[in-house]
Design a protein around this nucleic acid. Structure first.
Lengths: 217, 217
DNA sequence: TAGATTGTTAATCGATTAACAATC
DNA sequence: TAGATTGTTAATCGATTAACAATC
């Protein structure tokens, strides 16, 4: 089992997808080379930080030249694990679960929703983009017959923990959690939380903070 | 205009909604008092950090006692600006825009979607939960007749920047951006980005990292 | 070669943690 | 009062930034 001290720091991990996005854009626009200085200007980071980040994975650049956009993009693509495809299941076929399944952006990077699960008998048997909604009771059977990399939790808040426990019991090691309830993950299980409530409330906090600060001046 | 140095640090701002969530839960369960030590155990933070966080807004506790759950919750609710209601518009009535509009969780905290906007003539005139989808061309007119606090961007990637510019032009100061493209905000405009691609890729990165680290041992 | 820009070490900054006096 | 726990200052830790030798 991997130790925590070997892990890349969280801030670096969060910037890697950003680099990938910008490099993909540049590559698409036919840009061949880029310096950390140039990248820093488009991305709003410091050149120093960018070089530090890249160097925690190895030297991808060349002194006096900079970085080859296409090469660097390929390296980061591999670092992010996007060189291989991933199989997903979505648990909870409500509004959000269906919206995520319908979104084509993930497929473009090799993330495929293979099935949805729900407890509502009305939904079972229906299809989203040709992907079937299966009864939640059959999750164990399904995962023992199909190799699944990531489970996406789109259930109501109160079902989240219980669902997570069952998923881990089914051998799922990676969870993308959209329920506004955090999951305590045992070692070896990775949880990425997307808490939309928290996100909206942070915006509201800043909005409110500005109003207070401004009124004080 | 408020200065940046007066702003609460980002990590603190991100933890406030978490506190609110846990305190709401405790309050609902009838818990009357809580110490920073107890909170630290349920939330997975240090007691010291919790006290520091609360104290950046003023002393809400009492020596020897701890914090009154309901009182503290009310204080944080105010800090987050949740004591007043917010009016929202959703731009882009696709899967995600409709899913967010349908989600009832935001209304519970006083965030109301007042209208959706889209360019697709097929969608215009339809309703989501009784909320009308209006033509994007009418955004300027709409915002001059209706006071809107937050705009939610749910358009495709390539439309995001252009939409953001128009929204700011309409006087919108707060943007909740779900498009996988970051928005450069001029001073005075607040942007909260929810980049689902980045989130999924970070999970994929950790998943891949674990595999690599484990294979090395 | 001269200029540019990396990779990397050292300095700085900011956030977290520890410690403890104040006080309920 | 004695025990508990805050509010707050000081110490530590980690991440960012600056600097510069290496080298393309």
């Amino acid at each position: 089992m991997s130790k925590d001290k070997n892990r890349v720091p969280e801030p670096v991990a969060r910037r890697m997808p950003k680099y990938y996005g910008f490099l993909t854009e540049m590559d698409k626009n036919g840009i061949k080379r880029v310096s950390s200085k140039q990248l820093s200007e488009t991305m709003g980071l410091t050149a120093s930080q960018i070089r530090q980040d890249f160097n925690s994975f190895g030297g991808f650049g060349q002194q006096g030249y900079g970085y080859n956009v296409s090469e660097l993009r390929q390296e980061i693509k591999k670092i992010l694990g996007l060189h291989r495809s991933h199989d997903l299941v979505v648990v909870g076929a409500g509004n959000l679960g269906r919206a995520l399944t319908n979104y084509s952006g993930f497929e473009k990077e090799g993330f495929y929703v293979r099935a949805l699960f729900d407890v509502d008998p009305q939904l079972i048997g229906a299809q989203i983009k040709g992907i079937e909604i299966l009864p939640w009771e059959s999750i164990k059977e399904y995962t023992s017959n199909n190799s699944i990399d990531i489970a996406v939790i789109c259930t109501p808040k109160d079902k989240c923990r219980q669902v997570a426990t069952i998923l881990m019991d089914c051998g799922i090691r990676n969870i993308w959690n959209f329920s506004p309830s955090s999951i305590s993950a045992p070692p070896g299980v990775m949880v990425e939380n997307v808490n939309l409530n928290d996100s909206l409330f942070t915006l509201s906090f800043r909005l409110n903070e500005t109003a207070i600060l401004d009124s004080k001046e």
